[in-house]
Design a protein around this nucleic acid. Structure first.
Length: 529
RNA sequence: GGUGCUAUCGUCUAGUGGCCUAGGACAACGGCCUCUCACGCCGUAAACCCCGGUUCGACUCCGGGUAGCACUACCA
């Protein structure tokens, strides 16, 4: 059994699509589970589609997600580093290698040179329905099969542009064994004579580069998207043409990620249209100037993205849904990958983030929340606007009160803003429902009552519940005695402190605000309302 | 059009011939908890694409339809 070596081989044509992330993840899980290597190779054989910054973006994304690279290109402290013995790992830097193998195919008659220009081919396709450059048509085209040797030489000498095409022998059944789908057989006649090399940029196409690199890099398993399944037989033919069939990698073609609604595969436009990111990180496209949102900037935890993506196309036996990366590495298996495409369900993604947010400690969330707070309150947000105690010390407490209602760190602000900023206006719906005719009277009396509480008795004592605190012990009997109704009084009180009918338990709020600020807010409400 | 792949609740899926009156999760809806909003808990609604065949017995196996998806470039 040879060593497991898999590769993720993205094209630097833009941001790394979330489907690509999943492909990378499955490769990584498979490699790690089998004690193998995960390689990263950049497939930049289309010079016209190259987008500056895309390579850095891809590597940084994988790093953020915790998808480690053993060999090839990887992110290291903001720098790209190259590791491994099989480099270079950028296809544009491997020209000499490909040229050598193109020549091999040419010399053995398994490929030929074609001079047809793109324009001529386009014309041909327009004229003849379903035109395909293959065994049936290549004899009518301009290539080294139809031209004399001298003519070919002349053309090459004078620098005519050409391509090298793979000579596909017709009417042969080719079977690809797929680890997910089983045997897939096609007839070679439906294949066209694929372009393997283009002289215009002295670069191979995907098909040739992919086979040569996977062979040279000793890749044992090719795990890639389903869109490659139709060309897999061609790849098998190429391995045969090179005489590499005995070390040919095993194939596994992953189901596609589909649009949340409608038909077709998930695209960047769906994210824009439906309001969710389709890229791991925010991407500033230097080529067209567009900016695309990312999961990281939207407040996702990498482990949530990983867990969510892992389950989009793979599912263990049983009902479990929460997995750490290490657990995924242990549990993952290709034969439990679904065969059918998975619709992308953004709501489920949010749920995963909610789960992981609950798992984080209050202290850690406080750290993560600080930048949000500073953005809202200004840089001196380490001092609370109303008092003498620092936000830093009460922040974990505040977070513990509101985190179960947040999906993202950024949502903590919506849930907890009233702790930091006294209400200046009061929610109309809440007022209508909860601010009664008698409320001003109730609040005036409550104010008196609370003023009588000694500052040192204000806070709920350590280890006691809010119900056992001095405030509750004082207020509840008072309400009962006056027969005002707990709901009536408490909701009005809540509106004074929060500005709306929402938020955590009222005595938790008074604990954080302290006596002075609590009373100030009640007085303010009495003035305004 | 051609070729290939696929097909269980709205969505992700469990299910590998009897454990299925089809299980879980997201979303939806209802209830409980409760000073509010959430969370949580409990519950409701919701699916085996169709037609044949094999079998004592099919969601599961086979065939044929149908539908969806992918590919069909000097893009990957």
């Amino acid at each position: 059994m040879r060593k497991v070596r898999v590769r993720f081989a993205p094209s630097p044509t833009g941001a790394l699509h979330i489907g690509g992330v999943r492909t990378a993840l499955y490769n990584y899980l498979f490699a790690k589970q089998n004690g193998g290597d995960m390689l990263l190779r950049i497939e930049d054989t289309d010079s016209t589609r190259f987008v500056p910054g895309a390579e850095e973006y891809i590597l940084e994304s994988l790093h953020w997600l915790g998808i480690g690279i053993d060999e090839g290109l990887r992110w290291n402290n903001g720098q790209i580093e190259q590791v491994g013995e099989h480099g270079p790992y950028r296809q544009s830097e491997r020209r000499a290698i490909y040229n050598q193998y193109v020549k091999l195919l040419l010399d053995s008659g398994k490929a030929y040179i074609a001079f047809d220009t793109p324009e001529e081919l386009e014309k041909k396709r327009a004229e003849i329905a379903n035109f395909q450059y293959d065994a049936a048509t290549r004899t009518q085209m301009v290539n080294s099969l139809t031209l004399s040797e001298d003519e070919v030489h002349t053309r090459l000498e004078r620098g005519d542009q050409f391509v090298v095409r793979f000579k596909v022998e017709p009417n042969e059944n080719v079977t690809v064994h797929d680890l997910i789908r089983g045997d897939v057989t096609i007839n070679s006649s439906i294949l066209d004579d694929k372009v393997l090399y283009k002289s215009a940029d002295d670069l191979p196409t995907y098909h040739l580069a992919n086979i040569v690199d996977d062979h040279l890099m000793e890749v044992s398993h090719v795990i890639r998207g389903e869109e490659w399944l139709p060309s897999a037989p061609l790849h098998v033919l190429l391995y045969r043409a090179f005489g590499w069939e005995d070390t040919m990698p095993e194939f596994a073609h992953l189901p596609l990620l589909l649009k949340p609604d409608g038909n077709g595969k998930l695209s960047k436009r769906d994210g824009d249209r439906l309001g969710f990111p389709v890229f791991p990180l925010e991407f500033h496209n230097q080529k067209d100037g567009t900016v695309s949102s990312g999961y990281r900037e939207s407040g996702y935890f990498p482990e949530a993205v990983i867990n969510f993506l892992a389950l989009l196309g793979w599912h263990n036996t049983g009902d479990r849904e929460m997995y750490t990366m290490d657990e995924l590495i242990q549990q993952f298996s290709l034969d439990r990958v679904s065969k059918s495409g998975a619709r992308f369900d953004y709501e489920k993604g949010k749920w995963f983030n909610h789960q992981y947010l609950q798992l984080r400690s209050n202290e850690e969330l406080a750290q993560l929340f600080m930048p949000v707070l500073e953005a809202k309150l200004g840089s001196d947000s380490s001092i609370s606007p109303w008092g003498d105690h620092s936000i830093n010390s009460s922040l974990p407490k505040i977070i513990s009160l509101v985190k179960d209602r947040a999906n993202f760190v950024s949502e903590l602000w919506e849930q907890a803003n009233f702790f930091f900023v006294a209400p200046t206006e009061y929610d109309e719906k809440s007022l209508k429902k909860r601010w009664k005719e008698d409320s001003p009277k109730h609040m005036t009396e409550l104010l008196e009552l609370l003023e009588s509480v000694d500052e040192k008795d204000w806070l709920t004592p350590e280890g006691k519940t809010a119900e056992e605190g001095v405030l509750n012990q004082l207020v509840m009997p008072w309400i009962e005695k006056k027969e005002y109704g707990v709901g009536i009084v408490m909701n009005a009180f809540r509106i004074c402190l929060v500005g709306a009918a929402r938020g955590p338990h009222i005595w938790s709020i008074t604990d954080i605000l302290g006596k002075e600020e609590t009373l100030r807010r009640v007085r303010k409400a009495l003035e305004v309302l």
